[in-house]
Simulated assay, not measured.
Amino acid sequence: MRSTFLHLALPACLLFLLTACGQEETARATVRPAMVVHPEPSAQAMESYPGEVHARYEPDLAFRIGGKVIRRLVEEGERVKANQPLAELDPQDVRLQLEATRAQVAAAEANLSLVRAERDRYKTLMDRQMVSRSQYDNSENLYRSGLARLKQIKAEFDVASNQAGYAVLRAPRDGVVAKRAVEVGQVVAAGQTVFTLATDGEREVLISLPEQTFGRFEIGQPVSVELWSQPDKRFEGRIRELSPAADPKSRTFAARVAFSAGEVPAELGQSARVFIQTEGVMALSVPLSALSAQNGESYVWLVKPDNTLKRIPVRIGAFAEKSVPVLEGLNPSDWVVAAGVHVLHEGQQVRPVDRSNRVVNLAANKE
């Protein structure tokens, strides 16, 4: 009987031990290795923004009167000189108005001659006491009225003469036609943009700043500019202008960056990148593979001294080729998971290892 019991109990015990060992091995298997790194000081801690080279002064040119465009004398991208004609309006209406005012000037001059002679005659008659003082005063008033009328008509003639000249649009300064907005035969209103002129002289870089970081920038803030044609050279600059309102489509704020040096080999329309250092922020960097995002929020996985994971939200800068600057959220002594972050979860137990697959004792490093 005892022998039979032993024969039955022994396999059950072995089965129990094997099951316990399997469960222990499964529990151990759930503690997965995780490659960890320290955040490193970021040499490229500056935020970068793409931009385009523009002229410092880019006036929109327009006719001062309305009319039909009959000639367009320049094309987009063409270099022009100061006072060079750019386009012409149909001058027929302004010429007719000029002729009408010229005729009114002639009529006013003839009327003035008549009332002047009448006043002089009444003055002679009054001296001989042949007319009353009131009659002479009336002739004097007619003369003064005629003189004022002539001055008015001459002023109107000058206006009409100027408007006849306004039918030709001229370049105010030397520069390049950056944009053309009309065609021959088009009817334009006074003040409607016809050309945009990029004047010669200083060059600037136009960039767009995101809405969430706009408050960190100010006029006069130092920056550095890299031209795509000269990637190994940086030019010092400063923020000269910040737009007070966001663009309704992109929701970004326009900013103009001026070069500190006088002559910079930057051509109109050339691509550039502006680097801006955020003051008061110790920038660290982590590998791109360490960064995750959810609902527009960036985060990394921090390994605590007990080898469990904690999700840490971070504020990041512009992405580099292999790393990303972390502006807020991490300390240099923190350990973050550098790979496989898409399969991790909060509170998970891990076995931290370095890049050489050596186990890292976080508790000892913490001490």
Rank of each mutant, 00 (worst) to 15 (best):
Gly329Glu: 08
Lys322Trp: 15
Val326Arg: 05
Gln348Pro: 07
Leu344Glu: 14
Arg351Met: 10
His345Asn: 11
Leu327Asn: 01
Val343Lys: 13
His345Met: 11
Val343Pro: 07
Asn331Ala: 15
His345Pro: 06
His342Ala: 12
Val324His: 06
Glu328Met: 15
Glu328Leu: 14
Glu321Gln: 13
Gly340Arg: 00
Asp334Glu: 14
Val350Leu: 12
Asn331Asp: 15
Ser323His: 10
Val326Trp: 06
Gln349His: 01
Gly340Phe: 04
Val341Asp: 07
Asn331Lys: 15
Val326Cys: 10
Gln348Phe: 07
Val326Ala: 04
Trp335Lys: 08
Gln348Val: 04
Ala338His: 01
Ala320Tyr: 05
Gly329Val: 10
Leu330Asn: 03
Glu328Phe: 12
Glu321Ser: 06
Trp335His: 11
Lys322Gln: 15
Pro325Asp: 06
His342Cys: 10
Glu321Thr: 08
Leu344Tyr: 02
Ala339Cys: 10
Val326Asn: 06
Gln348Tyr: 03
Ser323Pro: 06
Leu344Phe: 02
Pro352Trp: 12
Val350Gln: 05
Gly347Val: 07
Val341Gly: 12
Val336Pro: 03
Val341Ala: 05
Asn331Gln: 15
Ala320Glu: 02
Trp335Gln: 03
Val343Met: 15
Val341Leu: 08
Val350Tyr: 00
Leu330Lys: 03
Ala339Gly: 01
Gly329Cys: 11
Val343Trp: 11
His342Pro: 11
Glu346Met: 04
Ser323Thr: 11
Lys322Phe: 14
Glu346Cys: 04
Leu330His: 04
Gln349Gly: 00
Ala338Ile: 00
Pro352Phe: 10
Pro332Ala: 06
Leu327Ile: 06
Gln349Cys: 06
Ser333Val: 00
Ala338Phe: 10
Gly347Ser: 06
Ala338Asp: 02
Glu328Asn: 04
Asp334Ser: 09
Val343Ala: 07
Ser333Glu: 13
Lys322Gly: 12
Ala339Asp: 13
Gln349Asp: 10
Val337Asp: 10
Ala320Thr: 01
Gly340Leu: 09
Pro332Tyr: 02
Asp334Leu: 07
Leu330Cys: 07
Trp335Pro: 01
Val337Ala: 03
Ala339Met: 14
Val324Arg: 09
Leu327Val: 00
Leu327Trp: 03
Gly340Glu: 05
Val350Thr: 08
Leu330Gln: 03
Val343Leu: 11
Pro325Thr: 00
